[in-house]
């Protein structure tokens, strides 16, 4: 059974104008997105900035209010569940993009990691300290760090602290919003591998948001490509990388750098060709407003946004 099921999710931001500040129009940040994630899998959400991928993630966890649509977690409706249902809230946690601003600079590591524990579990001071120390060990930091402040750690270490905080109450689903894009490339792989390790260990499900196709390929079982608030293509990692159907996906895939210098010429021609195709057939893939069409299945796992063939 799917652990998370999102049905026709819409997140609109109002545009206000006029003397009485009435809502005159909406910015459609997320416009009809549906997907489901199986327990223990990693689902990748890819798109350029402004495509609505982060907003989707934030809407699922309740940081953005949902205009319409449904979010089901473990079969229960959690749409706009806000702060009411703490048992559900406990099961969904988030890892933030910026490890510098996501940790309160005025709090010690102990207080940062213990924050969810204090909200959801009644632990004694001693138990709490032990839990935090063991969490620090899980994420590969010294348990003695509990009395330090965030600024005493590097970016990679801070992101590990953020992860420790997210897994503290043993959630089932973690929304990872560009978890490594603020880190040095040398540290990125380290954190990603570590995320995969704890996924196996704790049987976690990830909603993995990223703009980097290389990382997504490495991390995810299923991938969706977003553009201007809508899905362009969705499928397994193999579907997307080996058989991209939408012109937008093709362009993204062709843009992945290849480290093998012998393929340079080949890559160059391939990109040229895709670029030409993109220019020629733009109107076949996008409607008059430049938005993607509705999704059409082309196999059991693979969906592509194409105009309905009539």
């Amino acid at each position: 059974m799917a652990i998370l099921k999102v049905n026709d999710l819409k997140v609109y931001f109002p545009i206000k104008a006029g003397i009485f500040n009435r809502t005159v129009d909406h910015v459609k940040a997320v416009d009809g997105v549906s997907f489901s994630i199986e327990q223990g899998k990693t689902y990748g959400l890819v798109g350029e900035s402004g495509s609505g991928k982060t907003t989707t993630g934030r809407a699922v966890i309740g940081l953005e209010s949902i205009y319409s649509g449904k979010v089901m977690f473990n079969g229960k409706d959690i749409t706009n569940f806000g702060r009411k249902n703490s048992a559900l809230r406990k099961d969904v946690q988030m890892i933030f993009q910026d490890p510098y601003s996501s940790l309160n600079p005025r709090k010690r590591i102990l207080d940062i990691i213990a924050e969810p524990l204090r909200n959801f579990e009644n632990l004694s001071m001693q138990e709490e300290k032990k839990r935090v120390q063991s969490l620090l060990e899980i994420v590969g930091l010294s348990p003695e760090s509990i009395l330090k402040y965030p600024h005493e750690f590097s970016g990679g270490q801070r992101q590990r602290i953020g992860i420790a905080r997210a897994i503290a109450v043993r959630p089932k689903l973690i929304i990872a919003d560009e978890p490594v894009s603020a880190l040095d490339v040398s540290v990125q792989a380290q954190v990603l591998n570590f995320m995969q390790d704890i996924q196996k260990e704790l049987n976690l499900t990830y909603l993995f948001i990223s703009h980097d196709l290389g990382i997504v390929k490495h991390m995810c079982d299923d991938i969706a490509i977003m553009y201007k608030g809508r899905y362009v293509e969705q499928g397994t990692t193999a579907d997307i990388f080996n058989n991209p159907q939408h012109i937008y996906t093709k362009r993204l895939v062709s843009a992945i750098p290849d480290i093998n210098p012998r393929n340079r010429e080949k890559q160059y021609h391939f990109r040229q060709e895709v670029q030409r195709e993109y220019a020629n057939s733009y109107n076949d893939y996008f409607d008059s407003e430049g938005l993607a069409y509705g999704l059409q299945p082309i196999s059991d796992t693979h969906l592509v946004a194409l105009p309905e063939r009539g």
Partner: peptide, 14 residues
């Protein structure tokens, strides 16, 4: 607007 406030919200803090 900073992430640590957003984080606290997702962590269930009032």
């Amino acid at each position: 607007e900073l992430d640590y406030v957003q984080a606290s919200k997702t962590l269930g803090t009032s």
